[in-house]
């Protein structure tokens, strides 16, 4: 069996585009608006969510036969919350400036619907290996949207790429101006909206076509 046809690869690749948590399931929009002014924060946020999601899926899937049904949500939440606090602590120890810029949004991964959603709908019904890949895939799908939005916003809003100026001075002298609107949260709404439109058009919108 070819690797790209394997179940594990499919669990990873499906949420990347076809079932992307942001552009298809419309989950996790709040943080996507808040942390995408700069590429750097978007990358760190995407990575943090991916790690949290992959390990929460793994843990919950491994425990899925022993978690008592009546308290499963609380158990899921404790696992997720612990992982988020852990991620926050690690960021504060090694990437202090970025963790300050992300401020409350790392902590708010706990309330990100993607994490709880995947635990409930996927990890509880699939083996750990598959759940882990599903977590990685959803995290990467979320992260890639974040990175794309942040790339556009940082480029148009501040004329920078990863903090380095890329718009030549000559442009500014010729009258080019950074688009202040891109630095505000509504800009992310518009970019995400355009992305969803594009994606639905390209994929032929199988659901409602």
């Amino acid at each position: 069996m070819k690797f790209t046809k394997s179940k594990h690869f499919k669990a990873f690749s499906e949420p990347l585009i076809d079932n992307n948590p942001i552009s298809m399931q419309m989950l996790g929009i709040c943080s996507a608006l808040a942390v995408t002014v700069q590429l750097k924060t978007a990358i760190v946020m995407g990575l943090s969510l991916t790690v949290v999601l992959a390990f929460s899926n793994l843990t919950i899937s491994a425990l899925r036969r022993v978690i008592p049904r009546n308290i499963r949500m609380i158990v899921e939440l404790s696992v997720i919350a612990s992982l988020v606090i852990l991620a926050d602590e690690i960021l504060r120890a090694f990437l202090y400036d970025i963790s300050k810029q992300l401020s409350v949004f790392v902590g708010l991964i706990i309330t990100n619907c993607i994490v709880m959603g995947r635990a409930e709908t996927y990890a509880l019904g699939h083996p750990p290996g598959l759940s882990f890949m599903d977590g990685l895939g959803n995290g990467a799908g979320y992260g890639s949207v974040l990175v794309f939005v942040a790339f556009v916003r940082e480029l148009l809003g501040s004329g920078k790429f990863l903090g380095y100026s890329v718009v030549p001075d000559a442009f500014y002298q010729a009258g080019y101006q950074n688009m202040g609107f891109m630095l505000l949260a509504p800009a992310a709404f518009i970019i995400i909206g355009l992305m969803v439109w594009l994606q639905k058009t390209l994929s032929g919108d199988r659901d409602h076509g």
Binding site: P68, I71, I90, A93, Y96
Partner: peptide, 30 residues
């Protein structure tokens, strides 16, 4: 359920305590 909830709480808090204590010097320096 109660036993399971308790053991989850103990494991999670132990993990977080170890992490918070271990990373504290770096965080204070930052």
């Amino acid at each position: 359920s109660i036993v399971f909830a308790l053991s989850t709480a103990v494991v999670c808090s132990l993990l977080l305590t170890v992490a918070a204590q271990g990373l504290n010097p770096l965080q204070r320096e930052n």
